[in-house]
Amino acid sequence: MTRIGVMDPGALSRRLAAGAVLSVPPFAVRLQTPLAVLHRSMHMLYGEFDLLDDGGVPDFVIRVSGTGGLRRFARRQAMAFIDTPPPYTPLPERMAPIMFEQALNWCVATRTFTHLILHAAVVAKNGRAVIVPGQSGQGKSTLCAALVARGWRHVSDEFALMDPASLAITAHPRPISLKNRSLEVVAAWAPDLRQSPAYEGTPKGTIAYVRPSRDAVDAAPEPVTPVAVVFPRFDPAQAPGLDPMGKAAAFIALTACSVNYREFGAAGFDAIGRLVDGHPVLSATYPDTESAVALLEQVAA
C-alpha cells in the first residue's frame, strides 16, 4: 500500500492514468482518469488514503475522462463512466473531482448490498456515535465539518452504512462536501481544515471539499455504535433546542433518508424499528454553528 499524499504527484498521475485501485474504506475503488485536474485533486483530498499496490478486485470501477467531438476543443467536459453508461450529465472538465465524488456516491448507494444505507453524516466522540441524517442541503455536512474541527471522529459525511443485525456503523470517511454559504461558515469556524479549491457554477452552486484527516482514515476499520439520531434544522430565527421526535415520525423520516431500505424488506423494517426503539431520536434546531456544536456535545455526553 502507498499513502497517496506522500507520492510524487507525477507518479500518482501515471498510476491514475493507467488505472489504480484506491482503498476508500470499506471499499476498493478502481479509478482510471487521464485528467490532470483530477490527479491534483486526488493527491490533495485523498492524501491520507492508500493506493493498493497489488491492485486486487475492486468493488467499484470508475473512469473519469474528457468527452469527445467538438468538446475536445471548446468548453471541455468531464464524464464519469461506471462500467457502462454514466448516470450523470457531464460537467465542465475543471469539475472532474465533483464527477468522481458523484460517481462514487452512486456506486455506494446502488451497489452496496450488505449494509442498510442512510443519507447521513456520522460523527463520534469518545466512541459515542451520533447519526445526523438529512438530504443534500440540510446542513449535515456543515455540522460534520464543524464537529470534526472540534476533535470529533469523522466516521462518514454522506452515508451511514449500518449493519442491519447489530446496528453497528461501518466507517466510510470521504471528503466532506460543502456547498455555498457553508464554505464561508466552515472556513471561519475552522480555518485549519484543509479545503479544496471552490468549484463555482455547479448544478448545486459552489462546492468545495474538506480533506479527511489521517486519524479518520486510520480509524476507519473500527465500526461505531450509535447512541442517538439527530435531525439537524438550521433556523436563524430560533433559539437552540433539542426536541424528541415521535417514534413513528422518526421511523418514517429515517426510511425516507435510506437509499436501500426497500431492498432489505423485513430486515430493514426490523433494523430501523430497533434503532428508533433503542435510541433517542431528536430534532436539533440551531441558529448558528456554535450552538449546533453545543447541542451535539450535549447529546454525546
Partner: peptide
C-alpha cells in the same frame, strides 16, 4: 404484517 406501535402512531 409486522407491526411497530408507538404513542404517535404505528408503522
Amino acid at each position: 404484517l409486522e407491526w411497530r406501535v408507538w404513542d404517535d402512531g404505528c408503522v
